[in-house]
Every structure is written in C-alpha cells, then in structure tokens.
C-alpha cells in the first residue's frame, strides 16, 4: 500500500501522496512520479561514476618533476608513500576519503537501487533512509585528495621542481560529480515508497 504522505526532498514540506506525478504544494518541484526515468538516471550516473573511479585509480593523480626526472603518483601510490614516510594518520585519512568512501557510496547506492522495487516495511525502510543520509554526509569528503593535489600544484611550482595534477585528478572529480548526481536522483525516488505513516 502507498503511504498517505510524502516528504518533499527540496523543502521538507509534507504532501499528500496522490496517484501519478506529485508536485510539491510549497516549492512546486516535482517530487514523485515517472519513476523509471529517475531510476534510469540514477543507474546511468552510478555506472559513469564507477568507470571514472577505475580511471582515477589507474592513472596518476599527481606528477612530480624534480630536476627533469619525473615521478608519478596514483592515489594508492600516494597513500603508500605517506605510510612509508611514517605519516600514518594522514595515510589513513587519504585512503578512507579517496578509496574507501567512494566505494562505500557506490555500494550504498547499489543496495538502494537493487532493493527499492521489493516490498519494504518498517525497519528495512528506515535502514535505507539512514543509509542514504550517510552517503549524503560522507560523499563530499572524497574531494580531499583533489584539493591536496591542487594545493601542492600551486605551491610546488619552481623552475626545477614542480608538481602538476595528473589525468587521475580529472577522472576523480568527474567521479565525485556523477556520484552526487546519482545520489540526488535517488533521493527523489525514495520518497514514493519511503515516507512512512504514523
């Protein structure tokens, strides 16, 4: 059975959950209906993000030119280098933010996308909403490594010693961007099945 009320993801106002397309009575945004399109958008964005994740981890995110000899660091390479230097906390932070958080976000979105069609009740529904909430909070933190590379590329910029960003950095920001779009498409989706009555 459909719930009686539905929460607007934009303005949080409570709306009646009628048949078909529901426009929020307060902010006029479309908050429900035409579900397949949104679902497909979420999938497309997620798959794009995953492809960029693979590219971001394969290609160097940072290029270090020291007196003409060039060394390149991938994300994992950078983490290992930090670990070897003894900067354990920073190595862990970068690993969590750049490698683990995006993966976690992928799995959470995948879980929500593959489970949303099954009939859900009570606690499971709450789990999904909680999971979504977590992805929203942790998602942006994966940008740390891109910022660090940008900062290093700005200050280590001397004649013979120079740091520049790598292709991996471009793939990484695109990954973050598409993951955010995918999550946004889901939030709108979740509403219809997921607003609970009292």
């Amino acid at each position: 059975m459909r719930d009686k009320y539905i929460r607007c993801p934009y303005c949080e106002s409570v709306n009646e959950n009628t048949d078909g397309v529901v426009y929020c009575r307060n902010c006029r945004n479309r908050i429900s209906g035409r579900k397949e399109i949104n679902l497909h958008t979420a999938w497309a964005m997620l798959i794009t993000a995953m492809v960029f994740y693979v590219i971001a981890n394969t290609y160097p995110i940072l290029v270090f030119d020291k007196f003409g000899s060039i060394s390149q660091n991938t994300i994992i390479g950078g983490v290992i280098a930090l670990w070897d230097e003894g900067s354990y906390p920073i190595a862990v932070i970068i690993f969590l933010a750049s490698v683990f958080v995006p993966l976690l976000k992928f799995f959470l979105i995948l879980y929500i996308l593959t489970n949303y069609k099954k009939p859900q009740k009570g606690s499971k529904r709450i789990d999904q909403a909680k999971l979504y909430h977590i992805t929203e909070v942790i998602g942006p933190w994966s940008m740390i490594d891109v910022f660090v590379v940008s900062i290093l590329a700005t200050v280590v910029h001397f004649g013979t010693v120079k740091i520049t960003a790598g292709i991996g950095a471009t793939a990484f920001v695109l990954m973050v961007f598409f993951t955010m779009l995918s999550a946004m498409a889901i939030d709108i989706r979740l509403m219809k099945e997921d607003s609970s009555g009292d």
């Binding site: 009320y5 929460r7 409570v14 009646e16 009575r25 709450i126 909403a129 909680k130 909430h133 607003s195």
Partner: peptide, 11 residues
Amino acid sequence: LDNLIICKKCR
C-alpha cells in the same frame, strides 16, 4: 499539512 513534518533520517 503545514503542521506536519517527516524526519529526514527515519521518515
């Protein structure tokens, strides 16, 4: 409806 609110976290 304006007097109602749905929890963002647990709905």
